[in-house]
């Protein structure tokens, strides 16, 4: 069955839909967690520490976190590989474009591929910046996420990269969530408007929620 799914365009789209929804679920949780930064370093740092102790005593320190990381990594890889293979196929299926071109699909639809690449690059930077601290702008300190976040968003490029990526994320979710519903066969004529609304609301809430953090640092609400 796995073979059938992976070898079919419809199956590969299913892989994209499921992995996309996993990442979307994570993003909702991530965004809500981020908002704790507005309640001061105490609450934010405590929340960050709690993430490492989730599931104790059943789970050892950081075990739950690593399970989440592995699942997310699998989702990102599955999403990217199927997107790459499907895109290659799509481009090959239309070897010659029309002389008279009339783009009609929406902006979010047309930017899915490049938007996805931008998001992929962003994730790499984001992890190197705030998880490992490799490319962090200030003096990165493990266990002090509040200060690390403030440092990142005290640089113009930190803000620029983050905000651009979050706008790309909003567009990606706007088309992606609705598409995933269609791919999984959950859409119907009666449900179409509801699904589009949920996609738009999710896109808007996530983008606004994530961008609130750099804006908070820039305006001095978070310092």
């Amino acid at each position: 069955m796995a073979r059938t799914v992976w070898d079919s365009t419809v199956g590969k789209k299913t892989v994209m839909a499921v992995s996309g929804l996993i990442m979307l679920l994570y993003l909702v949780v991530h965004m809500i967690g981020n908002l704790k930064i507005f309640f001061g370093p105490g609450e934010f740092n405590h929340y960050a520490h709690w993430l490492r102790t989730v599931g104790e005593p059943f789970m050892h320190y950081e075990w739950t976190l690593w399970v989440i990381r592995v699942v997310l990594l699998a989702a990102v890889v599955a999403h990217a590989v199927s997107a790459y293979q499907l895109s290659r196929r799509d481009i090959k299926a239309r070897p010659r474009t029309y002389v008279h071109r009339k783009p009609r699909a929406g902006y979010a639809t047309r930017t899915m591929r490049w938007g996805g690449v931008i998001l992929g690059l962003f994730i790499v930077w984001h992890i190197l910046d705030l998880t490992t601290g490799t490319v962090h702008s200030g003096g990165f300190e493990t266990g002090k996420p509040y200060q690390n976040v403030v440092d990142t968003f005290s640089t113009w490029y930190g803000n620029a990269v983050y905000i651009v990526a979050m706008l790309a994320l909003g567009l990606h979710i706007r088309h992606g969530f609705w598409s995933a519903a269609q791919t999984l066969g959950a859409g119907s004529r009666a449900r179409d408007r509801a699904l589009k609304t949920v996609a738009n609301v999710l896109a808007l809430l996530l983008t606004a929620g994530f961008i609130a953090v750099p804006v908070g640092v820039m305006t001095g609400v978070v310092s």
Binding site: T9, V10, K12, K13, L86, R89, D90, I91, K92, A93, R94, R104, A105, T109, R110, M112, H175, W178, S179, A181, Q182, T183, G185, A186, G187, S188, R189, D192
Partner: peptide
């Protein structure tokens, strides 16, 4: 190619086959 839910097919269809047909 594969479907990216652009919806151009259903707009062009002279017989009005709806996009939800793909779903």
């Amino acid at each position: 190619g594969g479907c990216t839910l652009a919806g151009e097919c259903a707009t062009a269809c002279p017989k009005g086959i709806p996009l939800t047909s793909i779903t």
